[in-house]
Design a protein around this nucleic acid. Structure first.
Lengths: 231, 231
DNA sequence: TAGATTGTTAATCGATTAACAATC
DNA sequence: TAGATTGTTAATCGATTAACAATC
């Protein structure tokens, strides 16, 4: 317990650095400074240096970071130096799209299988992956030592699905179902709720100033109301 | 400028409260306490009370919150009391899935149109929505006064797409493309990068303790190395 | 009145930014 | 050496939690 764990906010930024470095390497950039990484990522240069410093000293003072070296270090840090085997639960529109998306755009992961309960979709192919009946999930998790799962099922079945896959060894879950999942200590859940993202965005689409001034007026009113009551 | 704007972290939680209240109302719950909302959401009761307090006093001391009343207040606060018109740019797998997903699961938004550049997908139907050529985007934005857009195009075309739609009046963007978008002051971008979410999750799938102890050992080594050098 | 729960202020915690010595 | 940029410590800022008076 000597050094505290790396915070989630830091871990969330590491793949952004990785993506930027991958792009720079494609463009044959050899050396990159924290300032340049800042411009590409939108995070401050100080923050980037500090984030990297949690894991070691990867740069050269006066010069910057070697792009390939830093990329490789990041792969190692995140755990992407070997391909990660992932399963997808739920072969609806979202599950299918997530499967295809990751097969095409995420070279660091291997989608091993997709599972569903619905007879209508079982046996269908997504890319080269055949949708399997959910009953087979435990066998696949155990045989392939799967640690990571994407959940793209309905809110009502998500908890049951999670109980089952966690029981067989899954420790990291990317959850697209709109529910809070209960998991034992040591299992990590990351929520990705598209509906919530969109709704919180809508907050900003309606003139914030207008809404806020409306609300300020109201609280001002209730405040003077209270004043009067106190007098 | 008297009272500061509501922070993003708060705004991000509001739709969660909304979803929980919607569910409670379906189950005919009339009164709910911050403690119960805490159990359903995973956020602390104090935090929930504080979040709501930014916008007014909606509860009754000693009793709790009226579910319907609070739900309606939240709809008003977020800006969902009227249906929001949204467009989707990009009719690939992800764009299609996002469109269907929101049509089915998000009663507070209206997907007005989906746009793409690719002749192969133009004219296709997603649910009841026909994919339109991207050239028509400016006309639709102006005619329907669209403020909110989902971007599900490639990294390389995202910036161009955003420049165009912002020019015609879009002020809030949910961006699924893996790039940092440049937008003028007043335009709000929310990034949702599935690849990054999955990669940061993978960090937690490989025994964090192991990785951290490995790194600690290393930094300890380099520290004692430095010590030696200093002696 | 007693018990419960809100709304709000104060205390704590954690994350970001500023600053700068180290060093290429 | 002069200029640049890292790695790291200190200062600031913001968000969460604790505490409690207000009040149903």
């Amino acid at each position: 317990m000597s050094s505290r764990a790396i915070s989630k906010t830091v871990v969330k930024r590491l793949p952004v650095y990785l993506r930027i470095l991958d792009n720079l390497i494609l463009r044959d950039v050899e050396i990159v400074s924290s300032r340049e990484l800042s411009l590409e990522s939108g995070f401050s240069a100080e923050q980037i240096r500090k984030d990297l410093a949690y894991f070691g000293a990867f740069g050269t003072r006066g010069t910057g970071y070697n792009a390939v070296f830093l990329r490789d270090k990041l792969l190692e840090i995140i755990g992407l130096d070997k391909k990660t085997r992932v399963i997808v639960i739920g072969a609806g529109h979202l599950g299918k799209a997530l499967t295809r998306h990751n097969m095409q755009k995420n070279p660091y992961v291997d989608i091993i299988a997709v599972f569903d309960r619905d007879r209508a979709v079982i046996g269908q192919e997504i890319g080269k992956i055949r949708v399997l009946p959910f009953e087979q999930v435990s066998a696949v998790i155990r045989e392939q030592k799967i640690k990571v799962a994407l959940i793209a099922v309905t809110a009502s079945s998500a908890q049951m699905v999670v109980d089952e896959i966690v029981r067989h060894g899954v420790t990291a879950i990317l959850n697209f179902a709109p529910v809070k999942l209960d998991v034992p200590e040591g299992v990590h859940v990351q929520d990705s709720d598209l509906t919530i993202d969109l709704q919180s965005l809508i907050y900003y689409s309606t003139a914030e100033e207008e809404r806020l001034s409306r609300l300020q007026k109201r609280s001002a009113e209730s405040r003077s109301q209270k004043m009067l009551e106190l007098e």
